[in-house]
Design a binder for these strands. Structure first.
Length: 116
DNA sequence: ATTCTGACAGCAA
DNA sequence: TTTGCTGCCAGAA
């Protein structure tokens, strides 16, 4: 209908949520990987922005499974408590040390490669 | 309308 | 190797 309708499901933000929710248990991915999967490529910042507003979604978004390409928990501060993100990852068997994911490369889940 | 910021990533020095 | 700047897109002031 008119613009009163909310944005289409194809909205960039929604796409990010969909991919994020597709991340398997005990796995993680990076912002750039998701951005690239969506075709934005260099717009990795938008992925972070989308997750930033993920709190607006009633659905639970496993944003703790999304980290930067260094495997660093850059967004841990956005989970309310700085230790929440690490705690969630640890709960899934992901070991985080010094705000960095251990065996990041092994735990890395690339949507381009997995969902291709 | 203009400017700045932001959960990143890539490249240059 | 680390540090800093730039590019990217969208939203808030």
């Amino acid at each position: 209908m008119a613009k009163s309708e909310k944005k289409a499901e194809n909205d960039f933000f929604t796409m990010v949520y969909e991919v994020t929710k597709l991340i398997p248990y005990g796995r993680i991915t990076s912002y750039g990987a998701i951005a690239r999967y969506l075709g934005s490529g260099k717009s990795a910042r938008m992925v972070g922005w989308a997750l930033n507003v993920c709190h607006s979604r009633t659905e639970f978004i496993p944003a703790h499974r999304v980290v930067n390409r260094n495997g660093l928990l850059t967004g841990k501060h956005h989970f309310g408590n700085s230790s929440t993100m690490q705690q969630l990852l640890a709960n899934e068997g992901i070991i985080v040390e010094d705000d960095k994911i251990v065996n990041f490369r092994e735990r890395f889940w690339d949507p381009l490669k997995e969902l291709k």
